[in-house]
Amino acid sequence: MPNFISDHHVFHNPVEFAMSKIGGTYKMPILWRIKDRAWRYSELAASIPHISHRMLSKCLKELTEDGFITKEIFPEVPPRTEYSITERGKKASEIVGILRDYGTELMKDYGIQSH
């Protein structure tokens, strides 16, 4: 497959492109959590170990901009914000599930116990 450019970045294959959208330390855990129900920002922050508010905000913004999740702000006092999965996000969460299962198998193969 020939190289292609997206957002001023050269990609060498579709896997690299997909991982740029859902890869990294936190995007997959966010998608995995949101796949079944809407989550509030504070719930996500409390459920993902070691994530900073800056990083959570950045990941949520990128996932929203890329169409994997939606952000809904409810006009209440104080305002309530919820993040939900989109159809694109549901497809990605299926892949995340497959990677999660494969990672669990690899950990067993290497004698690593999950927490």
Rank of each mutant, 00 (worst) to 15 (best):
L44H: 03
K27L: 01
I51G: 07
D7H: 02
N13W: 07
P78N: 13
P79A: 13
R54S: 12
D109H: 15
T64E: 06
A45V: 04
T104P: 07
T64Y: 01
I85E: 08
I98K: 00
G23S: 00
K35G: 00
R37A: 06
T86A: 11
Y41Q: 04
P2F: 10
E43V: 07
A45S: 05
I30M: 05
H9Q: 12
T64D: 05
I34Q: 10
H115G: 09
A38S: 13
S52R: 11
E16I: 14
A18G: 04
E72G: 02
Y102E: 03
I30C: 04
R37K: 13
K90W: 03
T81C: 12
Y83Q: 09
V10L: 10
I34W: 09
G23W: 00
V15F: 01
F68A: 03
E43K: 08
S57F: 08
V77M: 15
Y41H: 06
K61W: 05
K58A: 11
M1T: 15
S84N: 12
A45P: 04
I85L: 14
F17P: 13
P49R: 08
L60A: 06
Q113V: 13
E76L: 15
P49V: 05
L99R: 01
E105T: 15
R100G: 04
R40T: 14
P79Q: 12
L56F: 06
A38N: 11
T25G: 00
V96W: 00
E76A: 15
F4T: 03
S57M: 10
G97E: 06
L63E: 03
G67E: 09
A92S: 00
K108W: 04
N13T: 10
L99N: 01
H53C: 03
I5M: 11
C59T: 12
K61G: 04
K108E: 11
S6A: 11
S93V: 02
G89N: 07
H9P: 11
D101H: 04
K91E: 09
Y110R: 13
R33N: 14
Y110E: 14
E65C: 01
I5P: 10
I30V: 11
E82P: 07
E62K: 04
M19A: 05
K21R: 03
H53R: 09
A46C: 08
E94S: 06
Y26V: 02
M19G: 02
D7E: 08
T81V: 14
E62A: 02
I95Y: 00
S52Y: 10
P78W: 11
K90L: 05
F74S: 08
P75Y: 07
Y41W: 07
F11Y: 14
E43Q: 12
